[in-house]
Design a binder for these strands. Structure first.
Lengths: 351, 351
DNA sequence: GTCAGCGCTTTTTGTTATCGAGTGCCAATT
DNA sequence: AATTGGCACTCGATAACAAAAAGCGCTGAC
């Protein structure tokens, strides 16, 4: 491993170098490093160490006689092994927690998470919308729109409503639809969507012969209403914060970045890479696989409801961000969002 | 009037000056003006005219010995009296028309309009969402969510669905709700939303005594479902186009601008000023009343369905935009959007 | 292994000179 | 009275140059 090639002194130096660079964005020379590192060594010695670090590809000079700046690999080592995460202070947590209004809708909570992330970190915040599997189905209704077109209305958590238009093989009379809804409501109400789905599938297999045609159709309809997952989406907040960082000042890159936030496709692909991890995850520079991410880093954390991971949130900003500040914020935002979503789910359960 | 103080020559010069400045963004000197204006006069003469124009506040020099650039007042005069609008060429119209898919939903058509505006003009496009008054109510249903909370489902144009959660004074049983829905559907289906509203109000007044309590409640519910207008909103497209213009390069102004697009509030206030006008409207610089609009202009046009104005669309860009190109594009986009929305409305009518 | 010192490289900053575009004014011309 | 050519002047942009600053690599001494 890389980090084994480094003695304690070299690590300290790399750490202070990166911290210094993060703070004021300028190449760090041996002199300043000698002063700020706390080590009692001369600049010359530091220069030697620097040469080693450069050889290892952890730092590099923008030109012959400038200080050193960290490379992507340097940052990587930094966040993996060198970073001392600042313990999130109590009042900050409280301040964030206060912004999650317990009575709010899911959508509101997600919005809040996005705006917390972007405003507290001063970076762009992202929230991957949760898959709708954990929420409880309160009620389902069908409404005939026209020939072969039926509107399915799912009421979820007694609060939120989702519509799905279904295109069907044959026409159904309103009374038929009403019956189907009654059947489904009687059997499925109060369960979580993914349980509903599982149950529908099981039922369809096991009792296929015993159910009359209406019930089959009802299950089919219900299955299709629940089945089509919501279009995958992601919420982005505070992208204009990124304008403030001059390392991203290149107009064209900047535009590409902002457009990526609009498109959302690439953001989504990044976040989806993170949903598998169960802890904070960090992408530095092009680690995410996108070339135009050159000078950007991403810090994400999954958030979970009731023990199961339902989404990811995070921030995106210049590689040169205060990881020690950002990481705990992303972490607690994820926890608090999870908790807020969770507490919203409790009441229906205890019914 | 200002324009009366100008003879034909001065006008020609102002026009060519502005055209030239719009084209390459640099102060225009007397020499170039002498060459390009077509007038057979010497630079010295032009300098005299320029001095006059400067006195009138139509142009000004950024510094002692630069050419002149138009002031906001200059642009104003230009668009009001001097501008020769380029006749929109046929194939361009066709190209735009082709992008409006006749079968699309309202939302899709609005999106299309936004993206047409921004991509064709290379500016940021805005579309004020139409008030929902012109669309026909196909069906209305009520769903009991819980104590005193009822979900009203409006099906519109046989295609689109809107939900509104109503908080009520008393509880209603499902059967009651069903009855009310039946009553409303029988009386109101097929009418446009604003007619429905009017009819409900009238009915409430005229026959208050004759209706039993259920009907009253039904009308009340219906009124409330229809009454609460959709949250006013505006659609913004292609705001990143604005990054390309270096007169807007000031990071802070730029950020303010982009944030305004997010907030939407101020954009909305601008567009709402335009909904009263029945033709193309142009705001130059701070004419819109917002200081940070210094270097921006807005070109808007209302669009109408079935003769009635239902919304406004337009673009926003640097003051130095090609008005002669932009104006006709905004114009025809408004017409085509209106036409597309209109044709979508025809079928239900002929039912 | 550490470090002071020296020479070298490169960026940054400041100064100055020069060029060119363009103005304003005036006197001459039409 | 309007137009024009001429001229001096202003100001920004560009280049050229010098000096300063920052920092490195290297070497030889401890």
């Amino acid at each position: 491993m890389l980090e084994n090639a480094l003695d304690a002194r070299a690590r300290t130096l790399l750490r202070t170098l990166i911290e210094s660079y993060i703070q004021d964005g300028q190449p760090v020379g041996s002199r300043t490093l000698a002063r700020t590192s706390g080590l009692n060594v001369s600049p010359a010695t530091i220069r030697n160490v620097m040469a080693d670090l450069e050889e290892l590809g952890l730092v590099h000079s923008p030109h012959t006689s400038a200080g050193r700046i960290p490379t992507a690999a340097g940052y990587r080592l930094f966040v993996d092994a060198l970073l001392e995460i600042r313990a999130p202070n109590r009042e900050q947590i409280d301040a964030i927690e206060a912004r999650f209004n317990p009575g709010a809708t899911t959508q509101d909570l997600l919005d809040t998470a996005g705006s917390v992330l972007s405003s507290v970190t001063r970076l762009a915040g992202m929230v991957r919308l949760p898959r709708n599997r954990q929420v409880a189905l309160t009620q389902i209704e069908f409404l005939r729109l026209g020939d072969r077109r039926v509107l399915a209305i799912l009421v979820i958590d007694g609060k939120e409503v989702q519509n799905r238009v279904l295109e069907l093989e044959r026409d159904y009379a309103p009374a038929e639809l009403q019956n189907m809804a009654n059947y489904l409501n009687a059997h499925l109400a109060g369960q979580s969507l993914h349980m509903v789905r599982g149950q529908l599938l099981a039922e369809m297999r096991s009792v296929r012969r015993d159910l009359d045609a209406m019930m089959l159709a009802a299950i089919d309809l219900g299955e299709r209403a629940v089945g089509e997952d919501d279009p995958d989406d992601v919420l982005v907040a505070g992208e204009t914060q990124l304008l403030e960082y001059d390392e991203l000042a290149d107009i064209h890159r900047l535009r590409q970045l902002l457009e990526a936030f609009h498109e959302k496709r690439e953001i989504l692909s990044i976040l989806d890479q993170c949903i598998r991890a169960d802890r904070i995850q960090i992408f530095i520079g092009r680690e995410s696989g996108l070339e135009w991410f050159e000078h950007c880093s991403v810090v994400t954390s999954p958030y979970s409801v009731d023990g199961e991971i339902v989404g990811v949130l995070g921030v995106i900003g210049p590689t040169r961000m205060s990881y020690d500040r950002v990481i705990p914020i992303v972490d607690i935002t994820a926890r608090l969002l999870g908790a807020a979503l969770n507490s919203r789910n409790e009441p229906p359960k205890t019914r």
